[in-house]
Design a protein around this nucleic acid. Structure first.
Lengths: 349, 349
DNA sequence: CTGAAAGCGCTTACAG
DNA sequence: CTGAAAGCGCTTACAG
């Protein structure tokens, strides 16, 4: 393994100069830099990350925490983040909470994390008071995605979930629906999402704005998954009374489950019941699912940029201390209605 | 930040002893270990990974390389691997190739990787001769998943793709189909998968075994995606001649695209055309897609275990050198036919 | 079972 | 613009 002294010797300079030249610090003459780079190249030298981290106090690594990497939104975010981080010379340490509370605690409350990473990104990870205390004492730069997780002084990138649900509801109202059901996430969800709360508020607000009553029997809580949507819809149909003519699912995955449940009940979409989701999942097109699209990859990319910019990506010069003060206003990305085949006017009676 | 000397002082021992006690090495008396653990606890001490890595030469980190984290198979594998690694005390560095050839090269051919990780896992990452040379010189332990990537001396976990395709084809034959089309991946796919080659061989083998001719007009290449399946099916239908009565898609995502294309062409599944995939994607159930299921999470978990076992997980004692010699036989996990609503006997003419 | 000491391979004030 | 030297915080032979 060639070390920095080998390069220094070959280039005829000190290891300090090699270190500076290789990291592109400005305090190296052009001629010296050339010599150092040539020597490093010739010896196939690569800096040792461990040594560099120990001496320099920076890890060149970012921790990315997601609830479940298998879900559309999170894998899409991670893909975009991964690309941005690696292009900026950072490594990505992945933490998938997977609904395991003890994992959540280990990740969020370990005093250890700050020695492993320079910064962290939390995607839709709800934070309890104890988590916030732990994160504050870590004193790491960070960023969150989604309204579900807010950390004081950390920037946040998200969509307006209330508005997204209003848009979806308005679409159904515009088609002439009056009995609009809502299926959404459960507070007891193991992943402890909170996104569904905002979406429910949007649903309710839009109904109220249209002068329609809120019928509790049309509002079913379940988990934020395909299966959850399936069960919620089955429950909705089993409740008796006039069935809804349309369903707003809190996310596309729930909407897909709803479509299955309706099909199993012998109901056609959209002839008998309209269904709309929120997200614009990869498969929404295949299923002909109308939805309110949110830009997942852009949220990831933007959050990565906001996180890294103040760290001085790639150059890895000395740390400059501006830890994004004043980032207390979330960056809100736009959503848009995508009408496909799962929504139509209600049947005339 | 409390350091190892602080603990040593409080416990009244040397730093060497603290180091040994904390890592659970056997050469520490029970009483001493207790004292050290108490001191560490009291001081809230966490070892510095950089220092530990530099001194010990092990990183406690594994690189996991996937073609696209957004696809069902890869996110499912990564989720299982992440859980196993973290439970074993290892960190996971994620590399998503994303079809970017230069990224592939940077990841696979960088002389740097071996200073960042103790081992690596390659999931369905095809390897060129130059990659193999680079990996060999890294001299890292590794494991691969999927038949698409084989590295000499690295264990491999996979399914039998030929057999999976044969099973799917046989199901269609058993239903009475004779004109069975195949849509599969393209050698020009940016991700350079090769899985589809085995699956095509299975399709052909089973047809031959049934005494049926191979009709090239029923075999369409496309990309391994929903959109690819959509386009391949459209092309199939546009070719004129008798249309197939059944389609075997090389993966579920292609099968989903096929279902869309058929629907767009006014054909019903399975009344007019049967469709079967391979994978058992999360959404296969929602779509009623018949398929041959492969155990994605188990492949990930097993590969992680095979990779870590010889490294002596968690204990992090001195490295013992047995680098899985004799692992030249892939571990093959079973697949199984899952019949849903997308396959049925062909219509009587 | 335990400790003193060297060493892992860099980066960073500090001085010039 | 460059170098000598200290130091980052551990682990590991080695000796006992």
């Amino acid at each position: 393994m060639t070390r920095i002294d080998d390069v220094a010797r070959l280039a005829g300079v000190s290891t300090a100069t090699v270190s500076r030249a290789l990291r592109g610090l400005p305090t190296v003459s052009a001629a010296t830099r050339r010599r150092v780079l040539a020597a490093a190249e010739q010896l196939d030298y690569e800096v040792s990350p461990s040594a560099s981290r120990l001496a320099g106090g920076r890890t060149g690594t970012v921790a990315v925490v997601v609830p479940r990497i298998t879900r559309w939104f999170f894998s899409t975010v991670v893909e975009a983040v991964e690309e941005y981080l690696h292009e900026s010379g950072y490594d990505l340490l992945l933490y998938n909470l997977g609904g395991r509370e003890q994992v959540r605690q280990r990740v969020l409350r370990t005093a250890n994390l700050h020695k492993r990473v320079d910064a962290m990104m939390l995607v839709a990870t709800p934070l309890r008071p104890a988590d916030l205390t732990a994160l504050a004492s870590l004193d790491l730069p960070g960023v969150t995605i989604s309204s579900g997780s807010r950390v004081p002084r950390w920037p946040c990138v998200r969509i307006d979930d209330v508005a997204a649900a209003r848009t979806a509801t308005r679409h159904l109202l515009d088609l002439g629906h009056h009995r609009i059901a809502h299926i959404s996430g459960d507070p007891d969800d193991e992943l402890a999402f909170t996104t569904h709360l905002d979406r429910r508020r949007g649903y309710q607000a839009e109904l109220r704005a249209a002068g329609l009553p809120l019928d509790p029997s049309l509002d079913v809580e379940s988990t934020f998954t395909i299966d959850g949507g399936n069960r919620a819809t089955a429950e909705l149909l089993a409740r008796g009374g006039a069935p809804p003519t349309a369903i707003l699912a809190a996310c596309d995955e729930m909407a897909m489950g709803a479509m299955t449940a309706l099909r199993d009940a012998g109901l056609r979409v959209p002839q008998d019941v309209s269904v709309i989701g929120i997200d614009d999942h990869d498969l929404a097109g295949v299923l002909g699912l109308s939805t309110v699209a949110q830009p997942a990859a852009e949220q990831g990319r933007l959050a990565a940029r906001i996180l890294l910019d103040p760290l001085g990506a790639r150059t890895l010069g000395p740390v400059v201390g501006q830890r994004g003060a004043g980032h207390d206003t979330p960056v809100i990305l736009p959503t848009r209605l995508v009408v496909r085949d799962s929504t139509a006017p209600p049947r005339a009676h």
